[in-house]
Design a protein around this nucleic acid. Structure first.
Lengths: 205, 205
DNA sequence: TTGACATGTCACCGGCAGGTGATTTAAATT
DNA sequence: AATTTAAATCACCTGCCGGTGACATGTCAA
C-alpha cells in the first residue's frame, strides 16, 4: 500500500459519503466505512478519533444545504424588486429542487427524526444561518406580520422536507406522485398559490 | 411461571408497544422485546414466528391512526354544513392534535422514511382508507378544483407530519417552538389562514 | 396414575459490531 | 547506509444480535 496519510483520509471521507448516500445511517458504522474505503478500521480511529469526529470531519467537507445563491436563482438583487409573496414562492420552490438533489442531505433529514447525531448538529447550525440570512435579505423591513409569515413558511418548508425525504422510500403521498416532475410541479403550484394569497400586507389576496 | 399462552402473548405485545414508544425502531429487536416482557425469546418465535409476524400481530391490535370521528370532532354531520375551507381547516387541526398524542404512530412515521417495515405497510393502508373516507365524506360534490385542493392538503399534512415527528427530537423548527402548545397554536392559525384563502371556489379569498 | 402435549427454561451457535495492542514495513532524516 | 518515524497490517477482545436444539415441568385427558 502506498503510504500517504492525506490520501487515506480522503478515501475514508469519500467512503463515508457514498455509504451514506447508498444505505443511510442504518447500515453505517466504522466497519462499513473501513470496508468501503478498503482501509483498515484502525486507521479511522487513528486519523479521526471515532464516529462522532469522523462525522464532524465529513461535515466540514460537504455542502449539505443549498446556498443562498442556489435558492435565489443566482441573483438575489433581482428578486428584491418583486413583491414579497413572489420572492418567497420562488425561494421555496428552488429550495425544494435543491434539497431533492442532495441524497445525503435527505438522509440526514430523515435520520434527524430518529436520533440527533453529529451531522444533524452541523446541519442544524447551517440551516439556522441559512434562514437567518434569507429573512435578512428578503424580509427585513417589509410590511408584514412577522409571526404569521414565519408560521406559514415553517409549515411549507416542513412539508417540502417531509415529501422530499419520503420520496426516497415511497412513491406517492396522497394523490401526489412525489417521484415525478409532474407531481412536484403540482406541489410548486400549490406553494405559489399559498404564497400569493397568504403572504404580504394583511389585506392581501 | 404461570403457564398461560394467552397471557404471555399479551405480555409480549405490550412489550412491543412500550419498547417502540420509548426507544423506537432503532433499539428494537427480538432480544429487547423478550427482555422487556420478561419472557424467553424462544417463545416469541414459537408464538409469533419472527419479527415481521410479531409486528403484524401488534399492528392488528393498535389504533395508529386517528378515526374519522376523532378528526371530525365527533360530529361529521355538523361539519358538512360549513364552508369547505372551514371544514378542511378543522380536520387538519384535529388531525395534528390526534397524531401528536400517538407516540408509536410518530415513531412509525419517522421510521417510514428510513425503511419500510411491516408496521409501515399496515399504517400505509389505514392511512389511505382514512383519506379516501374523508374526501368522500366532505369533499365529494363540492365545487372545487380537485387537483389543487389535493396538492395544498398534501403539503399541509406533510408539514404537520414532519413537525410532529421532529418535535420528538428537536424542540424548535425555525421560529416555532414545536413542543409548546403556543407554537402549535401559531401553526393552527397558519393552517386556518391558508385554508380560508386557498380552498373553495377558484375565486375565493 | 399415567401418559401426552404444550408451556416455559437453558445453553449454545455463528456473525458482526465497536474497539485495542503488538507488529511489520515503507519513507523521510541523518 | 543506518536510523528513526509513522503508515499500514494483523490478530484479538468483548458484547450483542438473531436464531435453534435439547431439556424440564406444569396441565389436562384417558
Amino acid at each position: 500500500m502506498a503510504r500517504n496519510r492525506k490520501a487515506t483520509e480522503q478515501k475514508i471521507l469519500k467512503a463515508v459519503g457514498s455509504l451514506l448516500a447508498r444505505g443511510g445511517f442504518r447500515t453505517f458504522g466504522i466497519n462499513a466505512v473501513a470496508r468501503q474505503a478498503r482501509v483498515d478500521k484502525v486507521l479511522i480511529y487513528r486519523y479521526f478519533g471515532g464516529m462522532p469526529d469522523l462525522l464532524r470531519a465529513y461535515a466540514e467537507a460537504g455542502t449539505y444545504w443549498p446556498t443562498i445563491d442556489e435558492v435565489a436563482g443566482g441573483d438575489p438583487e433581482r428578486l428584491r424588486g418583486n413583491p414579497l409573496h413572489e420572492t418567497v414562492a420562488t425561494l421555496l420552490c428552488n429550495f425544494a429542487r435543491a434539497i431533492r438533489r442532495r441524497p445525503v442531505t435527505l438522509e440526514i433529514l430523515a435520520w434527524e427524526s430518529i436520533e440527533r447525531n453529529e451531522l444533524a448538529k452541523v446541519l442544524e447550525k447551517v440551516r439556522e444561518d441559512f434562514s437567518k440570512n434569507l429573512s435578512r435579505l428578503f424580509v427585513a423591513g417589509q410590511d408584514v406580520t412577522e409571526g404569521e409569515l414565519a408560521a406559514v413558511v415553517s409549515l411549507l418548508t416542513a412539508g417540502i422536507n417531509y415529501l422530499a425525504v419520503r420520496s426516497r422510500k415511497v412513491g406517492r403521498y396522497g394523490d401526489v406522485n412525489i417521484r415525478s416532475e409532474e407531481g412536484w410541479q403540482r406541489l410548486e403550484a400549490a406553494i405559489l398559490m399559498i404564497c400569493e394569497r397568504c403572504i404580504g400586507s394583511r389585506e392581501a389576496a
